[in-house]
């Protein structure tokens, strides 16, 4: 028996709305749960002290520093490579087998599991290049991980620049380089920045790749050759080894707040970019 189209329409619509509501409720329940359990435990001391007794007491200052420094290294390395690749693909070449290979590589990199990045970073940076467990090893591994994100978003951003701008700049005696510096980069900047911010978000949230490359030392790192424990790694260890639920919640809440800020920042940039390009 076939259902009456009007009834099937009603059922489908209900199911679809229900699914969307389930997803939203799920998301907000996770976030609100972590925040409500964690925020009360975020104290001034928590933010400014180094962990002691394996993280049972003290704060997470060294982990905050670890997260920031690993992320900084990754961003500083991946940004020029990613943006440069995007400019090569859009401005310096025509579609060819070479661009296909480059795009295929970037898309494949995007799919590689973070644990495999961790394995690679461990054997290549930590062992082979003798960088040891360090901020540098962790940052370089993460740089490879966020490279595809930056390439893709930058390429999209450059594509949205009005094609006549290039022509006008060339017609006024501008060279390719001048056109890039004065027209393309400023116009595509919010889009490029969005890609970088998304990359930063991934670095902050990453655990598997960092734990194998930056290590899990609790001491305050003193240089990029020091090992470091990031907040995500710290949270993982606290929670998995049941060291301190209280501190685990506080760390998770801080991570979520950071991710929220990063996401809101990216969205503001996207909206500004969309408003500008119309």
């Amino acid at each position: 028996m076939r259902l009456n189209p009007r009834i099937s329409q009603k059922i489908a619509k209900t199911v679809i709305w229900f699914a969307a509501i389930v997803v939203l409720v799920l998301l907000f329940s996770i976030i609100i749960y972590i925040l409500s359990k964690g925020i009360p435990n975020i104290t001034w001391q928590f933010l400014t002290e180094i962990p002691s007794d394996m993280g049972r007491s003290g704060g997470i200052l060294s982990c905050i520093v670890g997260t920031l420094s690993v992320t900084l290294v990754a961003t500083v390395v991946a940004t020029p490579l990613g943006v440069g690749t995007a400019f090569y693909l859009t401005e310096y070449t025509h579609e060819s087998i070479v661009t296909k290979i480059i795009r295929f590589s970037a898309e494949s990199l995007a799919g590689i599991p973070s644990i495999v990045y961790g394995l690679f970073g461990f054997i290549f940076f930590v062992i082979y290049l003798k960088l040891g467990w360090s901020i540098l090893s962790g940052g370089l591994t993460l740089a490879m991980m966020i490279l595809p994100t930056i390439i893709r978003t930058s390429e999209e951003a450059i594509h949205t620049v009005h094609p006549m701008y290039r022509e006008v700049s060339f017609s006024l005696g501008g060279t390719k380089w001048q056109t890039m510096i004065k027209i393309l980069i400023p116009s595509a900047l919010p889009g490029i920045a969005t890609g970088i911010i998304l990359g930063i978000g991934r670095c902050v949230a990453e655990t598997a790749a960092v734990i194998l490359t930056a290590g899990s030392a609790l001491q305050m790192p003193v240089s990029i050759f020091s090992p470091a424990r990031t907040m995500a790694v710290h949270f993982y260890i606290l929670a998995r080894e049941s060291i301190s639920l209280e501190k685990a919640f506080a760390t998770a809440a801080l991570l979520i707040i950071l991710i929220l800020i990063i996401n809101i920042g990216a969205n503001i940039l996207v909206n500004r970019f969309v408003a500008k390009s119309h």
């Binding site: 997803v23 939203l24 998301l27 907000f28 996770i30 976030i31 972590i34 978000g201 991934r202 902050v204 949230a205 990453e206 655990t207 995500a232 949270f235 993982y236 929670a239 685990a248 998770a252 991570l255 979520i256 991710i259 929220l260 990063i262 996401n263 990216a266 969205n267």
Partner: peptide, 15 residues
């Protein structure tokens, strides 16, 4: 919101 879902650290989901 869905973008945010993608940004939450996987360890938090596990926890």
């Amino acid at each position: 919101a869905i973008q945010l879902l993608a940004g939450i650290p996987s360890v938090v989901y596990g926890f």
